[in-house]
Write a protein that binds this DNA or RNA. Sequence first.
DNA 1: GGCACAGCTGGCAATGGTTGTCATCTTCGA
DNA 2: TCGAAGATGACAACCATTGCCAGCTGTGCC
Lengths: 134, 134
Amino acid sequence: MSAHQALRDAGLRPTRQRLSVLASLRDRPDAVTAQELHAELRRSGDAIGLTTVYRTLTALADAGLLDTFSREGEQAFRRCGDVHHHHLVCERCNRVEELSADEVEAWVHDAADRHGFEVTGHRADIFGICRSCR
Amino acid sequence: MSAHQALRDAGLRPTRQRLSVLASLRDRPDAVTAQELHAELRRSGDAIGLTTVYRTLTALADAGLLDTFSREGEQAFRRCGDVHHHHLVCERCNRVEELSADEVEAWVHDAADRHGFEVTGHRADIFGICRSCR
DNA sequence: GGCACAGCTGGCAATGGTTGTCATCTTCGA
DNA sequence: TCGAAGATGACAACCATTGCCAGCTGTGCC
């Protein structure tokens, strides 16, 4: 799906800035913060405001187009697949691999049932050092 | 183990303030933020500075005595058991149940191996609404 | 194409959780 | 009991993030 269409579907106007953010996120393996992305875009000659980067990332995350990661005090974002998945995160380069795991899903529902909880969500992330960072 | 001894083992002096923080965290089912805890302690007549609450919680977490939870922009803490576990968190009252899950541990190592990652840690939390909040 | 308007942008100010500073006070081993 | 070393707390500083608002732009409609 084109970035243009993705924005449309999310009820967001496909502006130059948003397309720019989505383009720089496309196929990027790592998660980035608003500040980092803003600096990179500026460095590459793209005129975009920091506030806009923040709002765009938040809007895209709200629309489910981006996954969020908290990195000691700040929030990082990454373009991830639509289907539910978990993450394998490199603590050195912030690369993220998407994982699917039926056993985790099963565990989630079993545990919640046993404790009388109504599940609203869950998150299972693995942290480590990737092959190329070792 | 006494709170006094726990602090000792963590290389921290058992001061009135630290004992006070540990005491109010004892057997508490929910996770609290520094601001919340500070307000509660003050309300109950305990003279303690906000800075001290922040530093104490951080120190206790660093020492492995507390687990941390990020709650939209702020950090919450909870006294948890020493053995490795996961969490079932009520989004309404912040109650936390500790879970152990061999299937999750197995998944962590399998997935990391498959992707060539060296595991440094992992986290698997379930969010929901507890029985009494429903 | 031209219009009008709802949505978007971006510089700047404000917010708010958290941390740095430092003078003062405690704890604890000698 | 004494003197470090460690801890406290009021206050200022930080800094990621958000609010504000005047101007800009995409979009549907004529």
